[in-house]
Design a protein around this nucleic acid. Structure first.
Lengths: 241, 241
DNA sequence: CGGCATATTGAAGACCTTCAACACAAGTGG
DNA sequence: CCACTTGTGTTGAAGGTCTTCAATATGCCG
């Protein structure tokens, strides 16, 4: 069982080796000098559409993605879902829950996903013994604040085409940062999820995908995206100059 | 503790007493058991439109607002300004600068403002000696993440009227949290700043202010806002039910 | 294959922006 | 004190972008 799940993990989808995970030296299994076998045993598998956390749940752990893809969302007053982020291997979820000791977001798997659960009290305990771990953790939170600012920028300044181009480009870059530099991207999320996250409708997303395809910038086939002209994509995203 | 500067501080504009400041026990002057006189001497005055920090500056301190109002903004690739936040007494700026050791935002005073400068290395040093200070600091950063998520919600789901109503209501609440529960609000920022921050144009902001006035929800006179019907304002903001 | 969810495309309409003119307040210099 | 300037805010009309509604197409999984 252990062997099988590991093989499947590496062949199916993107995953970061633990050494490249953004949590880095904070990784509790790493700190404990576990073997690879032990590491995998600490991971939790989430099936597609499985909800790991509900808004309002008491906070006790952060989630680090090893492989797969998650989305976080809140349910607004009028009962609609608003997706606050998509998360790739190495990303960390749950920081927003610390201040009031409860989660404010739902966390749901978009594909079969492996996550490392990091118990917060153990993280604090490790932090109590190492200043570098503490500082690393603070830097990760600061980075999360920075990432959210980028999303705010998308909303405040960009039109639909710029938003979608920015989204595709950011996916490209995020995979590249994880060592998967490829112009071929497989989106884990539906058009509805993309539209929701970008504050658009699915129709608009669909129309703009075809427009970018006609402009020879992308080739779109369902969830598979091929970036045919990266510099034009960056221009379309409004990120150049 | 009974000098002139203290009196002037309290009479001029909203300010939090240091005990209510959101930095709370993290406040370095407080930690050092300074007298109130010493406290005031540690504050730095910013004139209206004075820029305290430029994007790209090396990071070394956080800014806590004692009185007045600041805005933070970035300059986008096409050279336009995008306001990322307005900050009131007790708020803390600069967390986004930790991860890459440089500020990503400009920080500019909207009015005459007093800020407490918190040297980051001293904060770390104090943290090294006290677990409760460390945890408090992490909680503050988590809160910042939560605040940004609220802004993302505004953009992704709300139309112009809901955005502006949300903005006014949030100002009301933020002042109320600081002990100034009043239906009279004086905005420190211009229509242009409000519009920019909400992703709208000044014309739209102006039109919606008159619309909310005709609906007997607000009374608007330049920078002075009177909330005539709070529950309707909340409804207009899309925050009810 | 059939059924259902997801995605694409078209036409009409709503909302916000753009452009332009005007109103108003604050500050300056004669 | 007024005339002038400048910055800021308000209002109107036209136009563009995105949404809504509706129909059709594609893909997926039993």
């Amino acid at each position: 069982m252990h062997n099988n799940s590991y093989k499947r993990l590496r062949s199916n989808s993107y995953s970061v080796p633990c050494e490249l995970c953004s949590i880095g030296s904070l990784c509790i299994p790493m700190i404990q000098d576990c073997t690879l076998g032990n590491l995998l045993n600490q991971k939790k598998a989430l099936a597609k559409n499985e909800i790991a956390v509900k808004a309002g749940d008491p906070f006790n752990k952060l989630y680090v993605i090893h492989s797969g893809c998650l989305k976080s969302y809140v349910i607004t007053n009028n009962g609609t879902q608003q997706i606050t982020g998509f998360y790739l291997p190495g990303d960390i979820l749950g920081y927003e829950a610390i201040c009031e000791n409860k989660y404010h977001n739902y966390i749901e798997a978009l594909t079969h996903t492996l996550v490392c659960e990091v118990k917060y009290d153990r993280l604090i305990a490790f932090g109590n013994e190492s200043a570098s771990i503490r500082e690393h953790n603070i830097r990760l939170m600061s980075n999360e604040i920075l990432n959210q600012q980028r999303l705010i920028m998308i909303f405040a300044q960009k039109n639909a085409e710029e938003r979608l181009a920015t989204f595709v480009y950011s996916m490209y870059r995020r995979y590249a940062q994880r060592g998967h530099t490829s112009l071929n991207i497989k989106l884990a999320m539906s058009r509805a999820d993309i539209a929701n996250h970008l504050g658009l409708t699915i129709e608009t997303v669909s129309r703009i995908f075809t427009r970018l395809q006609q402009a020879e910038i992308l080739m779109v086939k369902g969830k598979y995206i091929l970036i045919k002209n990266l510099s034009e994509l960056i221009k379309a995203a409004g990120e150049s100059e």
